[in-house]
Design a protein around this nucleic acid. Structure first.
Lengths: 358, 358
DNA sequence: TTGTATGCGTTATCAC
DNA sequence: GTGATAACGCATACAA
């Protein structure tokens, strides 16, 4: 990597580090009033003379005053900050959710602290603790894949911090939750494939300790049951939740003597892409010889050939929902919290990869 | 959207809001010592008896003590927090940069506050001000497309906050910068196309107030000049920086009587995708009849047919570089800052869409 | 309407 | 080693 970088030293300039910033005392001193009046004016309190308020605001502007949110927050005991913990920031679904959260929180003048757990339980714990230390008002989390113990989340609750789980949630924790109806979506997807005439549908499943993957499997099984189709263990491949693992699983499936005529990559569109690529390599025609359905409606599913049938999770909307749920809960600021679950119904996006009949 | 949502009220539970958290005084009281000793122990100072230190740590654990970072930061005058402002969180390039920054800052126990400007100058100003208020130690920014006035960034400097610009930078501001060598990359891309035998290469350019788009245009022009090819104004389409605008521009270009045989979508891979889709619609063969080159190496460029030639910007690496640049500058914590520019050399990814010769 | 006094939780600087 | 005390900057209850 060394060689791709060049460093230019351009100009020498002198900045002062740790400059003394203007405080309300500076303003007060200049105007020969007290800091409390300045504070009141800055907070637009009605208990301050209109004229002096104007003057104060003007002086603040002149002295380039910026409120020290730290001090203010310490005093008020709330930070107007929401902490977000996701497995990976640069995964489409999560960055969309974050964008949604950001949009909603921005309007309310809230800040966002973002952490990524990198799918590591250990790092997730560290992130959560950092957020607690930061005294965030609320923690929003989608748990990492290798989480099984949720003591750190219980901790959040114990500290009196609001906790909202989304997408991948720990069922056993009584918190606000925003989820997708994964089971229903899976069910519909598989029904759709059956109705298209596929008779032997394989499943690529994700780590079963995550509720979302259990639910998706459930939906798959229910659909088979509804149509009285047999459940064939050799058609269910565990842990196929990346493109590479999806490809590998596909090669395995397509080497069976009695091979499937469709694959539901319930884990993600990436694994579905792996399926598609292997099919292309083996010159197996999609959708006529092999149907493919993914999950998540990643942007690329629309532009593969054929385009990939998938399930849209309304990720940005999900983020907004999370944020608004928090604000809504805050409004009833009594001591009673009613744990709610908001379920967003995903949408099946039928595309070329499963349209056998057309 | 109403109909896609279901809300479940599950269980009634009572939580206390605003619980009193344990402070160092609580620990001190319990152990019959003073808060100073507790503080010292918690900060692993050497001026504490080893035995009492152990006891304090144990008690802190028992009482579920969490340091109040607010108070600590207020006292210490630094927050160990870096603020990041990007146009869009959920754009691949930016979310990758953020992931890179996060990776580096996490190791140093720094926090990240993320804002998105939504390509709005006004919101960008608000974001920056929020970050100043939050007393972040450093602000990392990639300016929004409609920025022209940089007073708010000058402000950051005036407040004694470190400022690092990346990718889209305001040249006139003397700050640390991490950029791509856009001109060189563009130059190489267009040279490659010329060497593949394309003779009439059109350019989709981005808003010229952004330096990156100016540089990319420059690279394009330089390549033409090198090969003594004419610059044809009708082949240069302004403001074609989304998929839709790219498609529109392509339709325009392909309706010329003397039409181009290649299009360099210098703005993004999305506009390149727009080009490809129009070409497919019009049954124009890529790459034989029309060459296409994009910019950014979005994941999807690899899976279109044909795959799209593009330029990789090493986005995650860029994020790490930004963070490390900050830490490095911090180590020389004197009053002299040498504005540096770190230039990362992007890499041309040659793919199917420009391989006329093979 | 304005000023006074106090505290938010922590850390740094003194003494002892 | 430990304790007392002040200070970080702001907001508010109370007095005036």
């Amino acid at each position: 990597m060394q060689s791709i970088v060049e460093i230019y030293f351009v100009i020498f300039t002198i900045y002062m580090r740790g400059k003394k910033r203007t405080t309300i005392y500076d303003i007060a001193e200049k105007l020969n009033i007290t800091a409390s009046s300045v504070s009141r004016a800055l907070n637009n309190s009605s208990y301050v003379n209109e004229a002096t308020k104007k003057l104060i605001l003007k002086t603040a502007e002149e002295l380039n005053y910026k409120r020290n949110t730290l001090a203010s927050n310490l005093r008020k005991g709330q930070t107007k900050t929401i902490g977000v913990v996701v497995p990976r920031i640069n995964q489409n679904f999560f960055s969309n959710v974050i964008a949604g959260i950001e949009e909603a929180t921005y309007q309310k003048n809230y800040n966002l602290i973002i952490c990524q757990s990198n799918e590591s339980h250990e790092k997730e714990i560290k992130c959560v603790n950092t957020l607690i230390n930061q005294h965030v008002d609320c923690i929003v989390i989608s748990v990492s894949v290798d989480s099984n113990d949720y003591q750190h989340l219980q901790n959040v609750l114990d500290q009196g911090i609001q906790l909202i789980q989304f997408d991948r949630v720990a069922d056993e924790l009584e918190t606000l939750k925003v989820i997708n109806d994964n089971e229903q979506a899976s069910f519909e997807a598989v029904c759709h494939m059956i109705e298209q005439g596929y008779k032997k549908i394989a499943l690529l499943e994700g780590p079963q300790n995550l509720n979302i993957f259990r639910q998706r499997k459930e939906g798959y099984l229910n659909a088979l049951k509804k149509y009285n189709m047999p459940i064939r263990e050799e058609f269910i491949i565990a842990n196929a939740w990346t493109k590479e693992l999806g490809a590998e699983a596909t090669r395995k499936l397509l080497s069976l003597t009695d091979l499937p005529d469709a694959i539901f990559a319930s884990t993600s569109d990436f694994s579905a892409l792996g399926v598609l690529e292997v099919a292309n390599d083996l010159a197996i025609k999609v959708p006529s010889e092999l149907g493919i359905c993914g999950y998540s409606n990643e942007a690329f599913t629309e532009i593969t050939s054929p385009s990939i049938t998938t399930i849209d999770q309304f990720s940005v909307y999900m983020g907004k929902t999370v944020a608004n749920l928090y604000f809504q809960e805050m409004e009833n600021n009594d001591t009673v919290v009613i744990p709610k679950i908001i379920s967003i119904k995903p949408k099946l996006m039928v595309r070329g990869s499963t349209l056998k009949n057309s």
